[in-house]
Amino acid sequence: MQILNPPGWPRPKGYANGIVAEGRTVFVAGQIGWNADGVFVSDNIVDQVRQALENTIAILAEAEAGPEHIARMTWYVTDKREYVDNIPTIGTVWREVMGRNFPVMSVVQVVALIEDRARVEIESTAVVPPR
């Protein structure tokens, strides 16, 4: 993957402006903060982010992929202020689960998610290089 950042633009923090990649594409549906049994780990957004990211990694593993292959993520949050207030802790969780991989990302506040207890839903696209 090649990170794209136009000359003169500041370096983004925690995400990339653009990525170019070639390979096998893996699409991961929106993952929320429940475990493999469909039980929410917590009502706290940070805990739900961790679980949603761990769920994403588990699905990628089925395609012999990992966090380093994620090219794009869209996060849907139910409370922008809750998300913004927790960015430092979410950043810590990110580094623990995802390492130093920073895909193209968007965060969108939504009125609600289908699962009432969900505070965040994360969908991803990964690109696994040819072998």
Rank of each mutant, 00 (worst) to 15 (best):
M1V: 14
M1I: 12
M1C: 08
I3R: 11
I3Q: 07
L4R: 03
L4S: 01
N5W: 00
P6I: 11
P6W: 13
P6Y: 14
P7K: 07
G8D: 00
G8P: 01
G8V: 00
W9P: 01
P10I: 08
K13A: 12
K13Y: 05
Y15P: 02
A16K: 03
I19E: 09
E22A: 14
E22P: 01
G23I: 08
T25G: 00
V26E: 03
V26F: 07
G30S: 03
G30K: 00
Q31T: 06
Q31G: 02
I32V: 14
I32P: 01
W34Y: 12
N35V: 04
N35T: 02
A36K: 09
A36H: 06
G38N: 01
V39F: 01
F40A: 08
F40N: 09
F40D: 11
V41Y: 05
V41N: 06
I45T: 05
V46H: 04
V46Q: 05
V46D: 07
V46T: 05
V49S: 08
R50P: 03
Q51W: 01
A52S: 10
L53D: 06
L53A: 12
E54F: 00
E54M: 06
N55R: 07
N55H: 02
T56E: 00
I57E: 04
I57H: 01
A58K: 08
I59T: 12
I59V: 15
L60D: 02
L60H: 06
E62C: 07
A63Y: 14
A63G: 03
A63N: 14
A65D: 09
G66K: 10
G66A: 09
P67R: 02
E68S: 12
E68C: 03
E68W: 13
H69M: 03
H69P: 01
I70D: 07
I70C: 08
A71V: 15
M73F: 04
M73R: 11
T74L: 13
W75E: 05
V77A: 06
T78Y: 15
T78D: 12
K80S: 07
K80Y: 11
K80V: 04
R81D: 14
R81S: 14
R81I: 10
E82Q: 15
E82Y: 04
E82G: 08
Y83A: 11
V84I: 15
D85T: 14
D85V: 10
D85E: 15
N86K: 13
N86T: 08
N86I: 00
P88A: 09
P88W: 15
P88M: 09
T89H: 14
T89F: 09
T92H: 01
T92E: 10
V93K: 02
W94F: 13
W94C: 03
R95N: 12
R95P: 01
V97Y: 03
V97T: 10
M98G: 07
M98V: 13
G99T: 04
G99L: 02
G99H: 06
N101R: 08
N101Y: 07
F102N: 08
F102G: 06
P103A: 02
P103R: 03
P103I: 02
S106M: 10
S106F: 06
V107N: 12
V107R: 13
V108E: 14
V108P: 02
V110Q: 11
A112D: 09
L113C: 05
E115I: 12
D116V: 07
R117F: 09
R117V: 08
A118S: 15
A118W: 07
R119Q: 15
I122S: 02
E123Y: 05
E123C: 14
S124W: 00
T125H: 04
T125Q: 12
A126G: 10
A126K: 10
V128H: 05
